[in-house]
Design a protein around this nucleic acid. Structure first.
Lengths: 336, 336
DNA sequence: TTGAAAGCGCTACCAG
DNA sequence: CTGGTAGCGCTTTCAA
């Protein structure tokens, strides 16, 4: 089934059919109806590849994330998708599983489909890829790493500020022994949270004792990490997690070990995913506005498309501030 | 950057470049290396739209699901994707949010990109769309509804059997007042679970008192549903959920109401998502092999591609049996 | 082992 | 308002 076939049956030119497909105004209403009828009868679906090829532009933007299983990324995807749909765009997601090879493959795929833009919200970004992306001239959004440029917008989360808020809060509650549960050393953004923690610890200069553990980004990873830090001595009275998803796992381990949260030990997460309030107990965490990030990412990718509104273009760099959300997983440490 | 440009620089024909791109064996190793060098230097990424258009076939399969946020669907996606990658295919996911209009749009999109096949794992399928899909002759996998056909494979879960297992288990524990938490009446598969529950109740013919509540497919929905069934009298001593994702929400509500699980009330989920073991308490549930479903779906879509192995083709209809997984959210009802 | 040329299905420019 | 036609970038015979 091709457009030519439709044209033949409708007794018009392919040009006309193309016009009705593209909502062009320059087509007689009667003609339009006739063509539409044929399209419906034939169950015609225009070949998108041909359209993109001929038109030379695509209305698809790509999103590549590290771990779709983690609601943090999923939320960004959904926000971006809904914003895109409102503007007549589609978004294709790709999951890397924190694997650099898959990241590379994902980016190449987007380059091959000549996507209108790509938002790379991953933790495993590397400089070489950033350079390649910059050269490609495809509008790009990068997360937590690198610098903005002609076609690249950078979104960064002020992790350190977030961690500091959490540590200050815990310190004020009386906690002096803390543990940090992060993951995948070497992955910049996550390491960012870890380093933010270390930097904050340094500020407290010896007044806080701490332990660290790095594991996979999921509940089982959190569980293992919790087991590890609980084995350290002196045992921490509070555990800070690199994200809520892992925090779910640390809560599970604490439950298994019979440690009451928050009476015996406090836990704070990061991200404020929806599940955080359904954790037992509901998780104190640092909110990161995923909805805004997703929408912002979409606009950053499609902004240059409207040179007219260039003035209203979004900033090429955006710093996000996490907010502390106190729920039931934190309390003063046990009197001992 | 086009293939022609590469050909010019490499001083060969476009045909040759095309050949190296397609791993064709009929190209001199030296020539190949030369071309590959130019490709690398130019950072050339062949236009996928042009390739698909010219070749007339695509190595992309589509997956459309109702709610990616629900790990059940995400797991199917990941399994399908990993299987696809192993076979040189890509998969594009689309999320409908249980919205028929979005489902239609998603399917049309797949038709437009001439996808190699489409797995429609949704609860909002309707007969008209099934018919359209059948006519389209695109390999399709449908879930829980309809009949298999020339190009359509049907995967069905034996919900009733699962529900019966759960009810029998609870009945044996001593429960006589149960509630079922489902969602979106009118959505076939989910209704399927509800009807399976009702059918089972009928078998017990008055020996079990029950209540029902339908809400959204997420923890908040489960929470609302729980509130509703807890208000019914006599109050149930066990709650069966249409899926684990909602069960997370009912556990949250029970916790808020101060009801101890499983001492005062039992909860059983459905699906056995990874989070089920991280729920508090770990959830008794019915396992559905999502990994197998995802892989099976991929093969069903690409099977006809290999007429040689037609004999080893997967069955056009597959019935999945849920297995009861007992964890800590169920126990005998309180003595009262 | 390599190349010339005819499409793939659609859009867009230029006429009428 | 409508149509003819030249591509878009690549694959695929068919020859050489």
């Amino acid at each position: 089934m091709t457009l030519a076939e439709v044209a033949r049956r409708a007794k018009v030119s392919t040009t006309t059919v193309s016009r009705v497909l593209n909502q062009s105004a320059l087509v007689n209403p009667a003609t339009r109806r006739a063509v539409e009828r044929v399209i419906r009868e034939l169950n015609f679906h225009p070949n998108l590849h041909a359209r993109v090829l001929a038109a030379g532009k695509s209305r698809t933007v790509g999103l590549v994330v590290s771990n779709l299983e983690n609601p943090f990324f999923l939320d960004i995807f959904r926000a971006m998708e809904s914003e895109a749909h409102e503007h007549g765009y589609d978004v294709t997601v790709q999951n890397t599983g924190y694997d650099r090879a898959r990241l590379l493959a994902a980016v190449h795929q987007l380059l091959q489909v000549r996507a209108a833009g790509a938002a790379i919200i991953v933790s495993e970004m590397d400089p070489a890829l950033q350079a390649e992306l910059a050269e490609s001239r495809m509008p790009t959004v990068i997360y937590d790493v690198g610098q903005p440029g002609p076609h690249v917008t950078s979104i960064k989360v002020n992790y350190e500020r977030g961690i500091r808020k959490a540590v200050e809060y815990l310190y004020a509650l009386g906690h002096r022994r803390m543990a940090f549960v992060g993951h995948h050393p070497g992955l910049k953004p996550l390491q960012g949270r870890r380093e933010a923690f270390l930097a904050t610890m340094k500020e407290y200069d010896g007044r806080i004792h701490y332990a660290l553990a790095m594991e996979a980004d999921d509940p089982p990873g959190g569980k293992r990490a919790a087991r590890s830090v609980l084995a350290s001595r002196p045992q921490p009275t509070a555990i800070l997690c690199a994200n809520d998803f892992m925090a779910l796992g640390v809560l599970g381990e604490l439950r298994e070990q019979g440690l009451k949260v928050p009476e015996e030990i406090s836990v704070v997460g990061y991200d404020n995913i929806g599940l955080a309030q359904f954790a037992a107990p509901p998780l104190t965490t640092l909110d990161i506005p995923r909805e805004a990030i997703g929408r912002m990412a979409f606009h950053a990718l499609t902004a240059d498309r409207n040179p007219a509104k260039a003035a209203a273009a979004p900033p090429r760099e955006w710093l996000v501030e996490p907010e502390l959300v106190v729920r039931a997983s934190t309390a003063p440490p046990p009197a001992r």
